[in-house]
Write a protein that binds this DNA or RNA. Structure first.
Length: 831
DNA sequence: CGTTCCCGCCACCCG
DNA sequence: CGGGTGGCGGGAACG
């Protein structure tokens, strides 16, 4: 075995230059690759692999791949075709070892195919590095890459040198929860926001003066550094066997995952991720090469995560072209709840609805019922200490030796797969079955736990104590680092784009989460996602067929409703945790924060931000979606589309206008009728779409559809004086270029609650849900109470939204969505 | 050309 | 000192 390992390769690869010069030596370069040497392998590895991949996750796979896999024969042919694609006749040319066939992702697939997702605990699922490497025909180095990220997810654990234990996805849920938690504690959300914001700012001064906004690189995130997140119960082994466990790839992988779990539309762009991961270690200068390296590493990680089907690649289209990004496609991670029993393999019935555990501390305890040690995270401030300790330990307990010898069994394991190539079909099938089974299982779990999830969610728990709220609102000290927005910025990014030449088209950006990649036909007007706004995973199909998308994603209403109702009944009182986690001294303040407080803090921060940057922006909450809450997450799709964050905004000028982004998606404004104006969804609020909003979208779409949007828009525009009262902007794209007098159809269906306020009734139609809203958070005092504000405060039909009771907290509702005026468009598309 | 990322050198660490 | 790990970045393949 060791034979074909390094020696050959090295010889062949001696010098890169040489290799390049002598293409004919290629075969040697890839030693194990028995091109046509292996008669036993009629099928090209390519075809097999392709099938494997395609079959593995039909629903997730891209169309292209699906296209390819129509049938085996076809596939083979195509594979061949591919091979000979640029056929130049040369025999060496049709060598298969195309680069893609050696990709880490593929390798990972092969690797994963060897082990069951949920191995029976009794089994001896050991992994011998050497054997795997050999069987997969790769250098060990590559296996390390895979193992490292698998280890970061605790899907494997190191036993000894050359030996790992396979755990499969048993720990995945716990791990993800832990990661999410840590991610939250690290304020990744804010950091992301930060980065995006800065990016955004840059676009302003690109032509002109070099603003010294870059002064403070990062919001002095002292809390950056963080090492490997462990799962109690596994840590000891890892500790004793792993010398440098806080090493890049593993940690990086975890952080990367955290970013997904924390950010709302669960999409993370490589760029942002890299920046954050770098920025953390040290307030390093924006080193170019370092950045590059980071990206490279992220690709590696992303590849295996993709193989695990935890993420998938997408593209975030921005003004400056499209950037690579990844979207979370893994299981929705519920906030820390005790869920211990989920571990039992096979089809477990939905977990019993346990009592919600409001206390964060409790959650963590339950989550990791480990021995006292339980340190799944190390606070940055303690890292040094920990490190030194680890060093000692390292010296004391020597490292990776190979003590455990369970050879016999191990061998058997591998014996089962003498030639994985030959077995691929079988493996694939097996995988499929397993997966479908798991899928069902997952669904059950989700739906089952969604309830308890929601119940334990602080956000769901309304009625924040006035004092508490107030207090929470005043925590600038805690947030300043990240939220630090030099006042100077406010002038930099006014709503009215200074640099926008007249005659140029303007763009309205909407939150993709709701708007679903809004794009209009109008070349001049488009509804687009925001800059800071996270993007949703929206297929970038025809930017035309928006409604369709929205509709599609608006399913599952029934289930959602169910949950909602349940929640309504079982609503829990807020409980604030105070207990400090003794371990994190310095961090105590933060940790002690209940989620609730955290929310508010964040809200405040966000509010601050948006106010700072978009002073005159209109903030439009999705009141109608008030009933939305996390419990609504019943499936991944939704998760990806909806946000968890609840933020509160108040517009300094006009207060808050509830609106559904989806409804705005089609709004078009004739260029000649508006002055430079943007309506944007605040980056944060954008991320604040409640899960249940889908149902809202659904209903709104089905019935009067996008009418409200036009109403809102009209109102907004009129209020700002951009269009004369009495004039309405059609929501219909087709009419985009015309200004039409108020359309009767635009009258909201729920007009009973309509408030006419100061605006002409012709132009302003208030959806019933507008009325309900009542800010629970003090509005920006600076702005005198305007008619508009009063208007919005108007008490209205309370029962308009049935599920309102589920989330009585006004603040939450406000946060649902916000409108603001941006200047950049984002859009996600699948690869 | 930009993106993706494979390859393998070589620094560590440990026995 | 030899062997396992795995950081790291050149530069090739891909699109």
């Amino acid at each position: 075995r060791g034979v074909l390992k390094t020696p050959l390769k090295q010889a062949a690869t001696s010098h890169l230059v040489l290799a390049e010069i002598q293409p004919d030596c290629q075969p040697l370069t890839t030693p194990p690759k028995p091109k046509e040497i292996l008669p036993a392998d009629p099928w090209t590895p390519t075809s097999n692999l392709k099938m494997l991949i395609s079959a593995a996750s039909p629903e997730i796979r891209s169309r292209e791949q699906r296209r390819e896999l129509s049938n085996n024969a076809n596939m083979v042919l195509q594979a061949k075709h591919c091979l000979q694609e640029h056929l130049l006749g040369d025999e060496y040319e049709k060598t298969q070892p195309s680069r893609k066939e050696k990709s880490l992702g593929l390798l990972c697939h092969k690797f994963l195919a060897r082990y069951p997702d949920y191995p029976s605990t009794a089994e001896n699922n050991y992994i011998c590095l050497d054997e795997v490497a050999e069987e997969l025909n790769v250098e060990r180095r590559r296996i390390y890459d895979i193992l490292n990220v698998l280890e970061s997810l605790h899907m494997v654990s190191r036993l000894a040198k050359n030996r790992y234990a396979w755990h499969g996805r048993h720990n995945l849920s716990k791990t993800l929860q832990a990661l999410k938690k840590v991610g939250e504690e690290n304020k990744y959300t804010q950091q992301i926001q930060m980065i995006k914001k800065r990016e955004y700012e840059h676009e302003f001064d690109l032509d002109g003066e070099r603003n010294e906004d870059m002064a403070r690189p990062f919001g002095s995130n002292e809390n950056s550094e963080m090492s490997f997140v462990e799962l109690p119960g596994m840590e000891f082994r890892a500790a004793s066997v792993n010398s440098r466990k806080d090493k890049s790839l593993r940690v990086m992988s975890q952080k990367f995952v955290m970013l997904f779990l924390v950010s709302t539309p669960q999409i993370v762009s490589l760029e942002v991720a890299a920046k954050i991961l770098i920025g953390e270690d040290q307030l390093e200068d924006l080193d170019k090469s370092k950045f590059k390296t980071k990206i490279r590493r992220l690709y590696d990680i992303a590849n295996v995560l993709s193989s695990l089907e935890l993420i998938k690649k997408v593209h975030v289209t921005e003004e400056r072209g499209r950037k690579p990004a990844f979207k979370w496609t893994g299981p929705e991670v519920l906030p820390s709840i005790q869920d211990t029993k989920l571990e039992t393999t096979s089809t477990t019935c939905p977990p019993p609805i346990s009592e919600p555990i409001p206390s964060k501390e409790q959650c963590s305890k339950n989550l990791f019922p480990s021995r006292g040690k339980q340190n799944f995270t190390r606070h940055p401030s303690l890292i040094k200490l920990v490190k030194s300790i680890e060093n000692d330990r390292r010296k004391i307990q020597s490292a990776p030796t190979s003590p455990v010898k369970i050879s016999a069994s191990t061998h058997q394991d591998f014996a089962a797969f003498p030639n994985e190539m030959a077995q691929l079909p079988a493996i694939t099938k097996h995988k499929l079955e397993e997966q479908s089974k798991r899928a069902n299982e997952m669904k059950m779990k989700l739906s089952g736990s969604a309830l308890e999830c929601g119940l334990s969610l602080p956000e769901v728990v309304p009625k924040p104590e006035p004092p508490l709220t107030a207090a929470a609102m005043q925590q600038p000290a805690l947030t300043q680092p990240l939220s630090a927005c030099p006042p100077s910025h406010s002038s930099v990014s006014p709503v009215i784009l200074p640099h926008t030449p007249s005659g140029v088209s303007y763009t309205i950006y909407l939150h993709p989460s709701q708007a679903h990649t809004v794009t209009t036909y109008s070349p001049s007007f488009m509804l687009q996602p925001l800059p800071g706004a996270n993007v949703t995973g929206i297929k970038n199909i025809n930017s035309k067929v928006l409604n369709k998308i929205t509709t599609e994603e608006g399913d599952n209403q029934i289930a959602t409703d169910d949950v909602t109702n349940t929640l309504t009944t079982t609503e829990r009182p807020t409980v604030k945790s105070e207990t400090a986690s003794q371990q994190c001294l310095k961090r105590s303040q933060t940790l002690q924060e209940s989620h609730l407080i955290k929310r508010y803090r964040r809200d405040e921060e966000n509010l601050d931000t948006s106010l700072t940057f978009f002073p005159s922006g209109y903030l439009i909450p999705f009141t109608q979606c008030a009933h939305g809450n996390k419990a609504g997450f019943l499936n991944k799709e939704k998760a990806g589309t909806c946000s968890l964050q609840h933020t509160t905004y108040s517009s300094p000028i006009a207060g808050v206008i509830p609106v559904t982004a989806s409804e705005l998606k089609a709004v078009n404004i004739p260029a000649f009728h508006i002055t430079p104006l943007n309506i944007m969804l605040s980056p944060t609020s954008i991320a604040a779409a409640p899960v249940l909003s889908n149902s809202c979208l659904n209903s709104s779409n089905t019935s009067s559809a996008s009418n409200p949007s036009s109403s809102v828009l009209n109102f907004t525009l009129q209020h700002i004086g951009l269009i004369p009262a009495g004039v309405q902007v059609p929501a219909n794209p087709v009419l985009q270029h015309m200004v039409v007098p108020s359309q009767p159809e635009n009258v909201n269906h729920s007009s009973e609650n309509l408030q006419e306020g100061k605006v002409s009734k012709n132009t302003l139609q208030l959806p019933h849900w507008w009325v309900e809203w009542e800010p629970s958070v003090p509005k920006e005092p600076q702005e005198p109470q305007t008619a508009t504000e009063n208007f919005f405060r108007t008490p209205g039909g309370p029962n308009s939204v049935s599920s309102l009771s589920a989330n009585p907290d006004g603040a939450d509702r406000i946060s649902q969505g916000t409108l603001y005026i941006p200047q950049r468009k984002l859009e996600v598309s699948e690869d």
